[in-house]
Design a protein around this nucleic acid. Structure first.
Length: 423
RNA sequence: GGAGAGAUGGCAGAGUGGUCGAUUGCGGCGGUCUUGAAAACCGUUGUACCGAGAGGUACCGGGGGUUCGAAUCCCUCUCUCUCCGCCA
């Protein structure tokens, strides 16, 4: 959520910057600025009326205690009109405030200056590539066939138990999952992130805080009987740790990492790139989250990108880093880097991480603030997060890229975690 | 699932209709004292909005009501805790 005062003071900046996200904010911004003015006028009037009312009430109290009942009763007659006015002011005020809030949540975050213009995935900017592209035999198998051949993942069994997109990992497949989770958590811990194990369901307030609600409601599984949502990413519970808190500037940044299962309905995305592990309803992910000082958040974003890059390098996967264009960025992000690894048998780049700076957008919703040393007024902090990493597509690339006639090779760095070198 | 209790400032915990935005203690910050620290003592210490400022308004879980006036009374919702039952 953008800052209301900022919109009021810089309506043109908001409209101009959002063009890069292919979002025409003109009508919304104009409505907001107009309502804002009305709101302030109403507040001034209401406050004045309330001040007078308070004064009279106090006087009546004093009269009563002094035993001057008649004078007190006389004073009461003046209050009924005031009371009616206050009621009307308050009613109009909350009506307008409600409208402003409805409009505010419609505005996406402003993109950072470095965000390239563009409509979609084709316009993303490749900022870096690394790793060696594997040479594949023509007989190379896609991961879903390898998974079946070595009995690593049973997609059909998942369909029986739950439905499409809920695979069952077994044997060395399950061990590989656990090894990756432990490896990613160990690396994050080494990098100074405190590990947390969050709930896998969140309430509405948390969903709103990080921006999933109200606009992406359809992407989350909803447990209606208790009105809870299955988390689409650990970002939601972990970032919400800091909802409604005021931190000390000297304690920034706060760094957390969490492993969690992630649940996504993926409504409307059937039929494309959904084979095997490419797109699932439930998957595992290790997430990193930071709460940062606004002056430091872009520096920290680069550090987080470097951390993720270290992971794909250690896994010996060919990768590239993209700076997302305005049209491909999420609603909440100011700047996003995506990581893709090359899955050789499919001949496809697969997104395995998304690292974003949300600046004050989430923090504003979360009321996540910090106080500068010696300063009285709290200010809004910045939040960032990134996948480090999402498992399924990493597994897909590992299986495909490392296949050989004698089996599938496990990257050296993972062997202490898997306990085996080959599948 | 059954029964009961409760929700007040960073925390603990008073306050049951009127100078209560809220006693007090702890914690935090500033100071006195000290070579330094501790102790002791003194002071200070919520957030948001409106306003150039002076200042004003709102907030005692959420919403509504009674009243000139509500943290305090009434209604309602949510949440938390305790005990019993069930159970990893």
């Amino acid at each position: 959520m953008l800052n209301l005062k900022f919109i009021q003071d810089n309506p043109d900046v908001v409209i101009e910057k959002l063009k890069k996200k292919n979002f025409d904010a003109t009508a919304i911004v104009e409505s907001i600025t107009e309502l804002y003015r009305k709101k302030n006028n109403l507040q001034t009037q209401a406050d004045q009326a309330k001040a007078e009312m308070n004064k009279i009430s106090k006087e009546i109290g004093i009269l009563f205690r002094g035993g001057k009942r008649a004078e007190a009763d006389a004073a009461k007659t003046r209050t009924s009109e005031l009371k009616e006015n206050i009621k009307q002011y308050d009613q109009q005020f909350s009506e307008i405030e409600g409208k402003v809030n409805e409009l505010l949540v419609l505005l996406p975050n402003l993109p950072h200056e470095s965000v390239p213009a563009g409509k979609g995935a084709d316009d993303n900017e490749v900022v870096k590539s690394g790793g060696e592209m594997p040479q594949m035999e023509a007989t190379a198998l896609p991961h879903w066939e390898l998974a079946a051949k070595y009995n690593l993942i049973d997609f059909e069994l998942g369909v029986k138990l739950t439905g499409a997109g809920f695979p069952v990992y077994r044997g060395k497949g399950a061990r590989l999952q656990r090894a990756l989770i432990n490896f990613f958590l160990a690396e994050a811990t080494k990098a100074g992130y405190e590990e947390v194990q969050p709930p896998l369901m969140v309430n509405e307030a948390s969903g709103f805080g990080t921006g999933q609600l109200p606009d992406k409601e359809g992407q989350m599984y909803h447990v209606g009987i208790d009105n809870l949502y299955l988390i689409p990413t650990a970002e939601v519970p972990v970032t919400n740790i800091y909802r409604d808190v005021i931190l000390e500037a000297k304690d920034l940044p706060y760094k957390n990492t969490a492993y969690s299962a992630c649940f996504r309905r993926e409504a409307g995305s059937y039929g494309k790139d959904v084979r095997g592990l490419n797109r699932l309803h439930q998957f595992d992910k290790v997430e990193i989250v930071q709460v940062a000082h606004p002056d430091k958040s872009y520096e920290i974003l680069e550090q987080m990108v470097a951390h993720v890059e270290g992971l794909v390098q250690k896994l010996e996967l060919p990768y590239r880093i993209l700076r997302l264009c305005g049209g491909d960025m999420s609603f909440t992000s100011a700047l996003t880097y995506d990581f893709e690894v090359y899955s050789a048998a499919q001949g496809k780049w697969l997104e395995v991480s998304s690292v974003s700076n949300f600046e004050a957008f989430q923090a504003n919703r979360l009321k996540l603030r910090f106080r500068e040393d010696g300063s009285k007024k709290p200010q809004i902090a910045h939040t960032l997060n990134g996948s480090a990493l999402a498992l399924p597509r990493i597994v897909a690339a590992l299986l495909e890229n490392n296949q050989a006639s004698e089996g599938i090779r496990i990257p050296k760095v993972l062997v202490p975690y898997t306990g085996f070198e080959m599948i």
